[in-house]
Design a protein around this nucleic acid. Structure first.
Length: 235
DNA sequence: TCCCAGGGGCCGA
DNA sequence: TCGGCCCATGGG
């Protein structure tokens, strides 16, 4: 039995489609809710501006809650700065002041500037090329590849390590590429599946598998090593 | 007041 | 290669 897919199905049945990656500039439009989520649809042919918005979000959300990122994106949207062309003219200092709510604003302004320079270079959007950009690590690169460019790469984050190490499928400090390989090996390389699965992992980490876990009504309790240790009377 | 959030760069061992 | 530190706001 393919454990990774079983877990996906349990999460999907519990939390339903998550509508990732949210596109704020399309919020309220047909197929998009008030926060830009598009539940059950994965194959929007993002144009350059929408891709850029996803890339911005991927950088701004580094170690930061999405709510704080939304605030920054709204500020940028109001100033018509959700395009690489318009943002390029902005000074790094000014950009930093506009994305304050996302935290690490000096670093992130520098990262966004580096990303814009890369996009302008017209180099191919490959994982290696993305990783060569200052401020882009494996999670950010894979988020961009999956959600902006529809490439079938599984995104690993701190939540993925936490959930799957508690379940007992990997160590808590498993290397990024190692855990990613486990997903790639066990799952069909499918963009929609990878899109939804990662989003469901984030939702599950917020709903139950928090730093201090709430195992009581966890949908994965029956197959989780950690949860079963807390509830030995499960069988 | 403290902890955590959809990480990544840098530096010294 | 790996651990430790830095970056910083905002919500619970």
């Amino acid at each position: 039995m393919n454990k990774f897919f079983v877990i996906y199905e349990k999460l999907f049945r519990t939390y339903r489609p998550q509508g990732w990656w949210p596109i704020l500039s399309l919020a309220g439009k047909k197929g998009f809710d008030a926060d830009g989520y598009h539940k059950g649809s994965y194959d929007y042919p993002w144009n350059e501006q929408q891709r850029f918005e996803i890339i911005l979000g991927a950088i701004l959300t580094q170690n930061t809650s999405w709510k704080n990122v939304e605030k920054s994106l709204k500020v940028l949207q109001e100033k018509d700065l959700l395009s690489a062309e318009n943002m390029e003219a902005l000074s790094e200092r000014k950009l930093a002041s506009l994305i304050k709510s996302s935290g690490y604003f000096n670093q992130k302004a520098k990262k966004i500037k580096a990303m814009i320079a890369f996009l302008k270079s017209k180099k191919p959007i490959t994982r290696d090329n993305l990783l060569s950009i200052w401020g882009v690590g494996p999670e950010t690169a894979d988020s961009i590849l999956l959600y902006a460019y529809h490439k079938p790469v599984f995104v690993i984050d701190a939540y993925t390590r936490r959930i799957f190490s508690r379940i007992g499928l990997c160590k808590a400090d498993v290397r990024y590429e190692e855990l990613q390989q486990m997903f790639h090996k066990d799952l069909e390389k499918n963009v929609e599946l990878f899109n939804e699965y990662h989003a469901l992992i984030v939702e599950h980490a917020k709903a139950h598998c928090r730093t201090k876990p709430d195992c009581e009504k966890c949908p994965l309790l029956s197959l989780c090593k950690y949860g079963r240790r807390l509830k030995p009377d499960l069988d």
